[in-house]
Amino acid sequence: MINNERNNKMSIHQHAMLSNIQKLQFAVLDLALFLDTHPNDLVALYRHNEYATQLKQYREAYEAQYGPMCIMTADTSDTWRYINSPWPWEM
């Protein structure tokens, strides 16, 4: 049996962290697209940098507590923890 029972039991804290990460990812991407057509907009640039910094902090905190979010993230544990997280369709 694969860890389905454990995967489906995401804590409220973990779910909230993922939700914040998704919101910040959207904002960073949206602002990056806006900056492609408005490169001199200082407010958009400031917000992009602010949100990108927050996103980095949230991702680092999430990965420190729950393991890597994607296969491109280095995992410092002694096991492959990426498969322990719920798949997107399991959330």
Rank of each mutant, 00 (worst) to 15 (best):
D36I: 02
R81M: 06
M10K: 12
M72A: 14
A74W: 15
R59W: 06
I71V: 10
S11C: 11
N40M: 09
L45M: 15
S77N: 09
P88K: 00
Q25Y: 05
H48N: 14
D30R: 13
S85F: 10
A61M: 13
Q22C: 10
A74K: 10
R59C: 12
K23E: 14
N8A: 14
S19P: 02
A27I: 03
N40L: 00
C70D: 15
R59S: 05
H13S: 14
L18D: 06
A16P: 00
Q22M: 11
L55S: 02
A64N: 15
V43L: 13
Q54H: 09
H38V: 06
V28A: 10
Q22K: 07
Q65F: 04
A52D: 15
A74V: 12
M91C: 14
P39K: 01
H38K: 09
W80I: 03
M72H: 12
Q54V: 01
M91G: 11
E63G: 06
L55N: 08
C70H: 15
W80K: 07
W80V: 07
P88E: 07
A44V: 02
N40F: 14
K9P: 01
Q22R: 15
N40G: 04
A44L: 04
G67V: 00
D36K: 15
L35D: 00
Q14S: 08
P68L: 06
R59L: 12
H13P: 03
A27R: 01
R47V: 12
E5T: 00
Q14I: 01
I71D: 14
W80Q: 02
E50M: 11
A44Y: 07
Q25R: 08
